[in-house]
Amino acid sequence: MPIALLKFPKDLLGDVFEQFHPFELYCISKCSKRIRNSVKLGGTQKWKISYAMSETTVSCEDMNFVFKYSKKPDDYFTRRTNRYGIETEMYTEYPHVGAIDLFGYLLETFGIRIIKCLWTDTKEWNSFSEIAKHLINSKTEIEKWELYSNGNKDNIVENIMSVINKVNITQGFECFVQFASDFQHQFIRYPKEISLRTSSWFTIDQLLNCTCVQVDLYDSMLSNQDINVFFEKWKKPGTFPNLQLLFISSDRIDEESPILDMSPPIRNVETPIKVIKSIPSYFSDWMFTNLKYSFKVIKEDGTERWLRIIGKSFYFVV
């Protein structure tokens, strides 16, 4: 016996839609534009969403619902269950633009305000730029953004980095893009953690103004002299209140030039192997395991940190 659902008042529609999980609401949203505009009445805005490896995952109430696309029409809307009989995967129509198109559809249809993880490749930028505008305008929170590159033109990379400054990334930004040697970029605001796989453009001035908890700079141009400049500021009370870990890998770092008036080689053989407390991190934690060869450095307010230089890498940790 059919019933005219859209004749229900709005609050009642919300009560009905609250009974559904993301796969079901997706199917409902596909019935018409009008009902698509109503499904968020079911409280979907509090869900979280992720996009990685061409798949979109919607998380609600500690459960993950993975949307996969299929090129076979027979597969559309079919669902797979896990061993507990819970639906965890659904196949959807193959998006016109690309997999990221489905991410945009779900983001907008459900009115989701928090992105758990965004894993994008610069080659997807043409499809992603419209979504980026939505993210900027809606002030959507992006907990973590991982950006990969597949040999794109420099102007695309510049566009993406200017978007990075406009969106609200809160926890981490990890960038695997190979930047051109003359690339320049200035972060306007920082998430808790940044990890840059090529960071030759990240200058000492940027480091001095960085508010992150964790900074990983690979392929950097910073030198022992720059690290000295960093320490001059760090030693003063109240500076770098958040910083718990700094890692720099650079051809211009060595164990022979002095840092903090320490005579080379900067290697403390007396420091025992000691496991230290790791900090919550989205990124790798391999560098937290021991302080072998590390020196203790003390701020003017008494705060202690450990520094270590091995080869061309500099570690500075809690």
Partner: peptide, 30 residues
């Protein structure tokens, strides 16, 4: 009773395709 009724309305379309949902809930096409 409202919660129960809403569950009943929801149950009508559980596991159904958009075409079937449109029919059961009398949703007009675009």
């Amino acid at each position: 009773l409202l919660t129960y009724c809403c569950k009943q309305v929801a149950m009508m379309v559980k596991g159904k395709s958009p075409e079937e949902i449109r029919e059961i809930w009398m949703i007009p096409t675009d």
